[in-house]
Every structure is written in C-alpha cells, then in structure tokens.
Design a protein around this nucleic acid. Structure first.
Lengths: 217, 217
DNA sequence: CAGCATCCGCTTTGATACTG
DNA sequence: CAGTATCAAAGCGGATGCTG
C-alpha cells in the first residue's frame, strides 16, 4: 500500500492496515490465535500465496504480527498478533457490527466459515432474560456447528458442538441469522428453510440489544 | 473494489468501505458535514478527480452517502452522509485511536489539516481535573489554529480561534501532540520547538485517559 | 508438504489534461 | 464547479515452480 502521506491518525492507520486482505488476516489471527501460514491461507479463501506472504511481512514490520519458530514436534513458523495487533480488536468489532445488516442481503458465491458467524452473533445478540436459567442452542450451518450459550446475561458463541442444546436451528446461514436478528419471525423460520427442533422459546430469548437494533434499522 | 465473496460481516463491510480513499472520504464528510465536490477534493490531498467521482458513486449506491442539489444561491451538488454512513463513526474513531501512536513517528511530506488533529485530540485527551474551572488552550499548528476546551470533565477540540486562552502552544504538529499526549515533558516543550505562552498548568491538566494511555504503550 | 518466489495478464489507481 | 477522458504505473489474481 502506498502511503496517503497525511499527518492524520486515520490515514496513518490505513497506511498500515488499510490494504486489501490486511484486516481479514488480522481477523483470522484473532479467531485462531497463533497460526501457521497454511492455516491462515485456508481461512482466507481466494488470497494468493504471494500476497499472504507479502502482507505478513508488512504486518510484521508494522509491529502488528510477530513470527515465532515453534519447537518440535510442531517445527513450523507460527504467526501471532502482538499486543499492538490485539488492539485492533475494537476496529474489527465495529466493522463487524456495521456490516451485519449486509448479511441479510444475499451475496453470490460466498464462502462461509462458522467462526466468522460465531463472532458476529456474539457481538450482535443479547439475552433478553438475563435472570433465567442458562440455555444453549446449536446452529447447524457453515462448515461446522455453532454453539450459542446465554448465561447470567452474557451471550457466547463459538464453533463447536453443544452437549444438550435446548434448541437447534438447521439450514442456510442467511435465514438463520435473519431469525436470530429478529428480522424473520420465528413462526416463519420453517417457511424460509430453517429447520427448528427443541424449545423455540429459548431462541426467542436471544435478540439484538438496543444499540445493535439501531444498526439493523 | 472486488468483493471478497465471503459471508462474513467484516468482509462485507470491507467490500463497501475497504477501498482506497473510501474511509478518508467518510472522514471528510463527518468533519465538514454536507460538502461540495471541490471541498472534498481539497480535504483529500492527492486523490485524483476521477477516483473521487468513482468513490462517491460507489458510496451512494452502497447507501453511505447521498447527493442533494442545493437550491440557489448555492446552486450546487452537496454530498452528505446518510444515517447509515453516520454509523461508521465508531469505526473511524477506533482507527484514529489506534493510529495515534503512529503520529509520533515522523512521516515524510505529510499534509496536515487542523480538523484532523482536532478530532484525534478530542478522542485521546481527558481532563484530569474535571471539577476545576473551565480552561481553553489554543494550538497554533496545521493550516489553522485549534481550540481545546475542558469544562465539566469533557474535552472538546475544534479548528478555530480562542477568545482568551489560558495557554497557547505554537510549533510543528508532531511535538505539540507529543506534549499533549504526555510523551514529551512540559519542561522539554521549548527544547523540541514548541513555543509556550500562558499558564502551562492548564496544559498539564489535559492528558490521555487510562484507555488511551494503554494504546500509547 | 509448508513456505514462499516468479512470471504474466488483468484491474485499479495515479497523473494530467480537458469539457459542459 | 463538477466532473470526464486518456494513458501510464502500480497492485492484485492466477498459475506455476522452487527449496528445505
């Protein structure tokens, strides 16, 4: 990336992390922790090998990423975020929240990974009944299932399987998000191709918070 | 910008606002409000006319910017952020905060505009003595002076002239920021080329808050 | 096989000039 | 003032090849 050559904090940030793929590389490192080159590649469908190598060098010299030689039996190079790189997390979170309304409009040929969805869900969904008993629901979509847990007012989502979920939603990621975001009525879920099992009142507890709803218009 | 073709809120955001110059155009619209094409150009040194026109079209079709024909006597086209565009503000603010440490390291040939600096200062500086009487300081740097006001715990900064400032700092933007951020001791200010007048204890009241200091390492 | 580097063609951006 | 047109340079995508 050529510099904007402005003495402006925004422009200086974009000089470092505004290049194509750069923030998506940071996303992968946030989600996966220390990662091998090959794992990053796999989490960035469409990136070319040379560009990933270029970007990792740039990020390293910008102090955002560090590289570390893992000892045997791993015996490979691991890339990880520096503390400075970790501080990009709020930027990513704001962009994810801002981008959420775009997840409703369909996009052609889009790759889906469940850990991307899990992060977005965790940022957008609140528990309407913080004092009720904890619940777990499982979303069967993307490249692997997603567990959403609500307990004591906090909602956590991650790729993985649930032990005994109160409910499961199965289908395409898009309508499932529509249901969770409250843009598709629970009663309409089956009609848009979301297969529902278990206690749907558990799903009804999970809804966007006030600020998130504002973004969804 | 070619789409990343990922079903990921971050990637979808970057599809719309991740292109070169795009977030800087949004910055200008946040700082200036509804603006003419020529004003935007002037606030974006180095952008070429065709690219600005392209980006404005893209942002318009993305629902971030709207264009409006102003009635006489202005009789020109005004560009402004839509509510959806306004919601990018947190993204910009996080990027400004993250980029602040980069303002200390010098960059060659950088353009400076005082309204960029004012926004950054407002985001990074707190009033250590919220209960004390209001103070105003003036920074003479950039393309015009900057007024920084602290009253009732809130700090506001804007391009403009102060009526009767308690203190003024005059010089290059970089060392002035260094002083305000507490990275250069007040006693060293003159030594790094910052001319100080008035009551320097007023300047000493203004310092990064806790979270901001964390970013500055 | 992991971790790149190289080559090539296409697309995006930059520089400059020009127009209603 | 608010753009469009043209052309050159840089960035990027796709394929392939190299090296431990």
């Amino acid at each position: 990336m050529r510099s904007y050559e402005e003495f402006c904090a925004l422009a200086r940030s974009l000089d470092l992390v505004g290049g194509r793929w750069t923030l998506l590389i940071v996303r992968e490192l946030v989600l996966r922790g220390p990662s091998r080159y090959t794992d990053l590649r796999q989490g960035l469908p469409g990136i070319t090998s040379n560009l990933l190598a270029d970007r990792l060098r740039e990020l390293e010299s910008a102090g955002v990423v560090s590289r570390r030689e893992a000892p045997p039996p791993i015996a490979t190079t691991l890339y990880e975020l520096t503390p400075r790189g970790e501080q990009l997390r709020p930027v990513l979170e704001d962009l994810i929240r801002w981008g959420m309304p775009l997840m409703i409009e369909p996009v052609a040929e889009a790759a889906v990974q469940s850990n991307w969805l899990a992060w977005a869900i965790e940022l957008m969904i609140s528990d309407r009944e913080p004092d009720a008993a904890p619940i777990t629901i499982e979303l069967r979509t993307g490249d692997q299932p997603i567990v959403v847990e609500a307990r004591e007012g906090a909602v956590h989502a991650r790729a993985g399987v649930a032990e005994e979920p109160e409910a499961t939603l199965t289908g395409e990621a898009q309508p499932i998000l529509g249901v969770l975001l409250g843009l598709i009525d629970l009663g309409q879920a089956e009609a848009v191709g979301v297969e529902c099992t278990g206690d749907m009142s558990a799903v009804a507890r999970l809804r966007p918070g006030l600020e998130q709803a504002a973004l969804l218009g």
